[in-house]
């Protein structure tokens, strides 16, 4: 390959003319709405914060005393933990119930969300269907999990059934968003290539979409499992779903036993840390693979 003809130089202008034109162009800086909105928001938030601190009703609580008392409570919780109303093995059993609740709702949620996520992903579904599913799911997600459990408690009665249904419901809405966005991220070229070779929708989904986004699917599902564990603890207390959360509710609401709350908190912390370590480990392995 050869280039013919001489190399074309930069266009040359007379100095004065050029400066004038450039200044003219520079002065036409576009009016940016977003900068003004951001600055205004920061200013308003700063003023509101200052006003709040001035106008708080502190009653007779002295800041220092309150701080010391809180410290004392924390000391009792974390430095003198003990189990009085149940044994260590019982506590372990209760934790496993909470874990089971989290696991069950995550699995249910993941299976249903996978299907709905495929239908909600803009690149492999139709536009109206995608909008309908995404809209519904956004509405469901806007209501907190606890509220869904309490809503289902009307029909199922307060307890584990309501907790499972409510938590699954919210897990679905969360995972549909996560999954469908992962599906939308994948390279559309491979989908196009298989469409061009005559493959059908199901084949494309299982041969391109899922293999390409499997790391995201696993990582989001695990993320939701961690959230569901935390929610399952709260559900034990708020909805009588059993597990370690219920024991905590009893220890605080009935026995006022700070030491026992401390012990239970340690239990939950240890489990949470274990989950976190496990999740990081899995994610690292997936990264190596991907």
């Amino acid at each position: 390959m050869q280039a013919e003809g001489p190399i074309k130089p930069f266009p040359s202008h007379t100095g004065q003319d050029l400066d004038k034109r450039l200044l003219d162009l520079l002065s036409k800086k576009p009016f940016s709405k977003s900068t003004i909105v951001i600055r205004l928001s920061v200013l308003i938030l700063a003023i509101l914060t200052m006003y709040a601190f001035v106008s708080f009703d502190y009653k007779d609580v002295k800041l220092l005393d309150a701080l010391l008392l809180t410290m004392d409570n924390l000391k009792i919780m974390f430095f003198e933990p003990h189990l009085k109303h149940f044994t260590f093995t019982q506590a372990l059993y209760q934790v496993s119930i909470t874990l089971g609740l989290a696991f069950l709702t995550t699995i249910f949620g993941a299976i249903i969300a996978l299907m709905l996520g495929l239908l909600a992903a803009g690149n492999i579904s139709t536009k109206p269907l995608s909008i309908v599913i995404k809209g519904t799911v956004a509405l469901i997600r806007a209501v907190p999990t606890v509220l869904w459990v309490l809503i289902f408690a009307v029909a199922a009665g307060l307890g584990s059934v309501a907790a499972v249904i409510g938590m699954t419901f919210h897990s679905i809405s969360y995972l549909v968003k996560a999954y469908s966005e992962s599906f939308e991220e994948i390279d559309k070229g491979a989908i196009e290539a298989l469409q061009a070779s005559g493959a059908n929708w199901w084949q494309i989904v299982f041969q391109v979409v899922i293999p390409s986004s499997i790391t995201y699917i696993i990582s989001w599902t695990f993320m939701r499992f961690e959230i569901n564990f935390a929610v399952a603890v709260a559900m034990g207390a708020a909805a009588g779903a059993g597990g370690i959360g219920f024991d905590m509710f009893m220890a605080s609401g009935f026995y006022f036993d700070l030491s026992e709350i401390g012990a239970i908190t340690y239990f939950i912390l240890i489990i949470a840390i274990c989950l976190e370590i496990f999740a990081t480990h899995i994610k690292r392995k997936l990264k190596v693979l991907s």
Binding site: G189, E192, A193, S197, G198
Partner: peptide, 19 residues
């Protein structure tokens, strides 16, 4: 789809499934 089977297509960015 049957006609598309008889037409192979090759792309600039290869369009393979990387994984």
């Amino acid at each position: 789809k049957k006609v598309r089977r008889k037409i192979g297509m090759i792309f600039q960015h290869y369009n393979l499934v990387n994984r």
